[in-house]
Design a protein around this nucleic acid. Structure first.
Lengths: 85, 85
DNA sequence: TTTACATATCTAGAAAATTAGATATGTTTT
DNA sequence: AAAACATATCTAATTTTCTAGATATGTAAA
């Protein structure tokens, strides 16, 4: 949940990327790792599982993988909760 | 989540109680246990933890404890999720 | 075309959640 | 007040989740 929240406003929660000057494709794994303080493998695993759940969309830029929110799925999930819960 | 859903419409998901003819205070533990197929202690533990989270409101009627949804808290939770997630 | 770097995957140990049996408590009936 | 019944609590075993170290893979720089 924290990661999803951070990704709502990348410019407020992460430093700028070195090769690109926008967050159009999200934030690179390393920055998210730093922010959480967890190990590289743990973060990679998390991001991968969130990707599998279609909560995040990955984009590869050179050496880096960027992750951004999948707004449609996230909203659909919240709406389902609202109806079902 | 299943329990919360069932408790939205007790009359559709549970048999009538033997001592009272309404679900104003919710459903007794035994009926919820039957519906889940879990053991008595497990269900009691679940209901207790949901009560601690203020998701359920307990009412004692003689030998039975009835549990009903705490709509305010449940809605507040969903709304928080909608904003935060 | 080797080296360095970012990320992914594999493996396994530690921590937490799930669950039931045994027992305790509270309430009603006899 | 003893017995019966509904629910709660305690304890512990099983299962699942969490997490990191080691290693692998993919990409770019030297």
């Amino acid at each position: 949940m924290a990661i999803l929240q951070w990704l709502k406003e990348p410019e407020k929660n992460f430093p700028p990327h070195q090769d690109i000057d926008h967050f159009n494709d999200g934030v690179c794994v390393g920055y998210i790792q730093d922010k959480t303080g967890l190990s590289q493998s743990t973060i990679s695993t998390y991001l991968n599982s969130m990707q599998n759940a279609h909560l995040l969309i990955p984009t590869r830029h050179g050496k880096w993988t960027y992750y951004k929110r999948n707004e449609e799925v996230i909203q659909a999930y919240v709406n389902t909760l609202k109806d079902t819960l």
